[in-house]
Design a protein around this nucleic acid. Structure first.
Length: 495
RNA sequence: GCCCCCAUCGUCUAGUGGCCUAGGAUAUCGCGUUCUCAGCGCGAAGACCGGGGUUCGAGUCCCCGUGGGGGUACCA
């Protein structure tokens, strides 16, 4: 029998990382086993569900590269089936009508010290008798339907927790159909999972205590019980369930923060699972090949954004410039103020004297320079800034203090000498490096004494990619312009 | 309250009775490479929640406690 798994998000919000991880484990299992992943939108909570949320979730899946094989199905399309099954249970005597008022029932249960209100509901139903119940129902008296849970225990063999057993007395005579005729979640899920012939239910362990109820429902309905696997939840840094107050929890937030989908998938896979060896940076194919439910952790995991950032940095360094370019371009447009007018090509920021014929596209060279030292696309955008603006916007205060302020007059002279050397030298890394180092020797100073002030003059910052690479990327004309501007700035500061 | 799950470095984890003076990764710190930053290389520091058992031997099995999490709805 081939594996059929499902991912059933509620469209009551965006796709959050916990959901994404559950989706990923299902996807991994499906792909690993050559099975099928079914996407089902559980939209029965009409109040909170919306099409916009459904789209957001689908977008999140698409971004992560998690494709599904069947669906999306909508749970709301199955309500007639759910209702019919509830009624069938009633007809078979496996469920009963509950005419009581829920609030009153709770109060009475509390007053009498009865653990479960449903035992009262059952008492009342039994006292009422089947005939009277039918009469009332026929008269249109509103009532819910409850499953009659027999004594005994309910067990299943969980893929991650092993043998699980619950005492039925600790379970409710759960409502399966509300007084308004709408089916309750546990019934809808069981019905849909059976309808969609789901063989493995892989979900968060917050569903652990729903499972015995669902097993009871499968049995009552005479449906095959799937295999269950309850994966641990994802926690915030404080050890509490991950939620909005921890900051970014939506998958889209991470896309926006410049995380690559492959990195996110890799990171999520490692949250509660490991391949059994010491690999960490793994491609999708490697993840699929290595995945197995029996290496899923039982303990919940803290979502560590630092490690995500590290992993993302690993991916950035390995991703070709051509793939990063569109992401960087979009991000540049999102900066405030935009570093690049949205929709514009990055190539238009290239210096006029860039020799594309020998060095290839300027924007690709830029990305290759930036990507090894950035952990996110957002960082790349920030580091790209000095290469995009017409001139240096402002000189970092701290950098000025360190590299210029001590002896502005001397710095000015040195910049001037660099400027005159660079006017004539061939514009490639080796020649530039030679020119600068030769000058340093002639001046009798370490190369750093030239390089640091030069970096500040060209980028406005104390740190950047290697200075000679920066020079190459800036081109001669811009370099000379910026040097002149820097000298002017220095002259104003210390005439 | 009741039911359930969980418990190894700050974090993600390896570990399925002797291979553990507990391994890796990240984060932190130091050194090196070097024009800065990042990276990379090397190194340091850092954990078996507590108590009882079982056993020749326990991080590994059992019990209790403690802590954390989930559930307890005519929510999903």
């Amino acid at each position: 029998m081939s594996v059929r798994v499902r991912f059933p998000p509620s469209p009551t919000g965006y796709l959050h990382v916990g959901g994404a991880r559950t989706a990923l484990f299902n996807w991994l299992l499906a792909r690993r086993s050559g099975g099928v992943l079914v996407l089902r939108i559980e939209d029965t909570d009409r109040e909170r569900s919306s099409d916009a949320h459904t789209r957001a979730i689908l977008d999140g899946m698409a971004w992560l590269g998690l494709d599904w094989d069947e669906g999306p199905f909508f749970q709301s399309d199955g309500v007639e089936r759910h209702r019919a099954q509830a009624l069938r249970l009633l007809a078979e005597g496996k469920a009963y009508r509950d005419f009581s008022d829920p609030a009153a029932l709770r109060e009475e249960a509390a007053a009498r010290g009865v653990g479960h209100p449903s035992v009262l509901a059952r008492e009342k139903a039994d006292a009422l008798g089947a005939e009277e119940a039918e009469a009332r129902a026929a008269a249109g008296v509103p009532h819910a339907l409850r499953l009659r849970v027999a004594d005994g225990t309910t067990s299943w063999n969980d893929l991650v927790h092993g043998e699980m057993t619950f005492r039925n007395e600790d379970l409710d005579d759960l409502v399966i159909l509300r007084a308004d005729g709408s089916p309750i979640y546990n019934l809808a899920v069981v019905s849909d999972d059976a309808e969609q012939r789901i063989t493995h239910v892989i979900r968060g362990d917050d569903h652990l205590s729903n499972t015995p109820k669902q097993v009871l429902l499968y049995r009552a309905l005479g449906l095959p019980v799937p295999v269950f696997g309850h994966v641990p939840m994802i926690l915030g840094p404080d050890g509490k369930r991950l939620s909005k107050r921890h900051g970014a929890t939506a998958v889209g937030d991470y896309a926006h923060a410049g995380i690559l989908p492959d990195a996110m998938v890799n990171f999520l896979a490692l949250l509660g699972w490991n391949p059994g060896d010491e690999r960490e940076v793994m491609t999708r194919a490697e993840l699929v090949a290595a995945f197995s439910m029996d290496r899923v952790q039982r303990k919940s995991a803290v979502f560590d954004t630092e490690k995500l950032a590290w992993l993302n940095g690993q991916y950035l360094a390995r991703t070709p410039a051509s793939e990063l370019l569109p992401l960087l371009r979009r991000r540049l447009g999102e900066e405030d103020p935009p570093l690049l007018p949205p929709g514009t090509d990055l190539a238009r920021s290239a210096p006029a004297d860039w020799p594309a014929e020998t060095r290839g596209p300027w924007e690709a060279a830029l990305v290759d320079l930036l990507k090894p030292r950035a952990r996110t696309v957002v960082e790349m955008a920030r580091q790209a800034e000095p290469f995009l603006s017409a001139g240096v916007r402002d000189y970092e205060e701290e950098a000025v203090a360190r590299h210029w302020a001590r002896d502005p007059a001397a710095v000015r002279v040195r910049l001037e000498r660099i400027e005159s050397r660079l006017g004539a030298v061939a514009w490639d890394e080796a020649a530039l490096e030679d020119a600068v180092r030769t000058l340093a020797e002639e001046e009798g100073v370490g190369a750093g004494k030239l390089i640091h002030p030069l970096r500040l003059a060209l980028t406005g910052r104390a740190s950047s990619p290697g200075i000679f690479e920066v020079l190459v990327l800036l081109g001669r004309a811009r370099t000379l312009e910026r040097l002149a501007a820097a000298r002017k700035h220095l002259a104003r500061a210390a005439p």
